[in-house]
């Protein structure tokens, strides 16, 4: 959670059950922005996300052949970090 003006920004990484558990815990802190990073083999049936993109690690400058789902309630434009 990032402190700042307005609603908090919440990043959630993990499975669907983990995400739902976190949502229950933070029900009184409606997040301005929510990002979920989960494995590509997760069953993604949640609603409320405008962004649901499968991102490969190498697309952002990484070295593995894995891919993860980036889900967000706001539009995100991911860029490579350029680091290796």
């Amino acid at each position: 959670m990032v402190a700042g003006q307005g609603s908090p920004i919440v990043f959630v990484q993990g499975s669907g059950s983990f995400y739902k558990a976190m949502l229950v815990k933070t029900c009184d802190l409606l997040p301005l922005l929510l990002v979920v990073v989960t494995r590509k083999d997760e069953e993604l049936t949640w609603t409320g996300f405008v962004e649901d993109t499968l991102v490969h690690h190498f697309e952002v400058g990484g070295m593995t052949d894995g891919a993860w789902s980036i889900m967000s309630n706001q539009k995100l434009s991911l860029e490579t970090s350029g680091l290796r």
Binding site: V37, H57, V60, G61, G62, G66, K75, S81, L83
Partner: peptide
């Protein structure tokens, strides 16, 4: 088994860039 750090870094940059 977890998402690599560069994924989070890129997400963080995208969020901060927008905000």
């Amino acid at each position: 088994l977890e998402a690599p750090g560069k994924l989070f870094t890129s997400v963080g940059h995208a969020v901060l860039k927008g905000l």
